[in-house]
Amino acid sequence: MSWLAKAQIQRLRADGTAVGAALDVLYNPTEYTLAKSNQIAEIAIPGLDSPLLQFVRGQTETMTVELFFDSTDGGTGADAKSVTEKTDPFYKLIKIESETHAPPIVLFTWGGDAFPGHRTNAAQGGQARYGFKGVIESVRQRYTMFSSLGLPLRATLSLVIKEYKTLPEQLAELGLLSPDRTKAHAVQAGQTITRIAELTAGDGADWRRIAEHNGIENPFDLAPGSILEVPAR
């Protein structure tokens, strides 16, 4: 008999340590959605066929998931139990906590290292993640079955979770270091290759590496307006 892994939601402190026991879902979701986008600005230049595009910043990734709950195993008559006994612990995760004055950080896990994003290339900002860490932005509760006394017996909770990352986490993932990117430099009149190396690489002694990369045989004969590539170190 195969073992069924249950999806869980765990409350976290800001340092990533767990708070209390994780909440097991009653039934695993049939689907969830991860959405990520970038903010791109359009720079209009007269005379061009279309505007130039400029990356501004990434937008917060969001996760949307629906969780189903049912309490009819206890009957549907006078002895029925409200499904809110099962849903309320999840609904409380959107409430403001007295200690932090904010809703808690949560971690949704299911599937271990098969969780989307686990194998994303770190150079592209990916995370070796085992779940989705964030703050619940919204909860929508939909009740679809009731007892003869009006107790809700079935419910679907729709959760929207916004990803939570600290500044150190984001900087570590992105690894944005200028020296690891090839640069381009337009030669100005009177500039020497040594001066270009100082401006672009921070060290005039790098002129030889720049000259070799661009196939320059005479470093004293640079044509104004020509474009030189400054390779990454």
Rank of each mutant, 00 (worst) to 15 (best):
71 S>I: 01
72 T>A: 15
72 T>D: 15
76 T>M: 05
79 D>A: 11
79 D>T: 13
81 K>W: 11
83 V>K: 07
87 T>I: 03
88 D>C: 10
91 Y>K: 06
94 I>Y: 04
96 I>G: 03
96 I>L: 04
97 E>F: 15
105 I>S: 00
106 V>C: 13
106 V>W: 11
109 T>Q: 15
111 G>Y: 03
113 D>A: 15
114 A>C: 11
114 A>N: 11
120 T>D: 11
120 T>V: 11
120 T>S: 13
122 A>C: 04
122 A>S: 10
123 A>G: 11
123 A>I: 12
124 Q>L: 09
125 G>A: 00
127 Q>A: 06
128 A>N: 15
129 R>N: 09
130 Y>F: 12
131 G>S: 06
132 F>R: 02
134 G>E: 02
134 G>C: 03
136 I>L: 02
136 I>D: 01
138 S>G: 03
139 V>H: 02
140 R>H: 03
141 Q>A: 10
141 Q>W: 06
145 M>P: 06
146 F>K: 04
146 F>V: 03
147 S>W: 08
152 P>W: 06
156 T>F: 03
160 V>D: 02
161 I>L: 06
163 E>K: 08
164 Y>G: 07
165 K>R: 11
166 T>N: 07
167 L>H: 09
174 L>T: 07
176 L>F: 13
178 S>C: 12
183 K>H: 11
183 K>W: 09
184 A>D: 15
187 V>C: 01
187 V>G: 00
189 A>E: 05
195 R>Y: 14
196 I>V: 02
196 I>M: 00
199 L>N: 11
201 A>I: 12
202 G>S: 05
204 G>W: 05
205 A>Y: 10
206 D>F: 08
207 W>K: 12
207 W>L: 13
207 W>G: 07
210 I>H: 14
213 H>C: 03
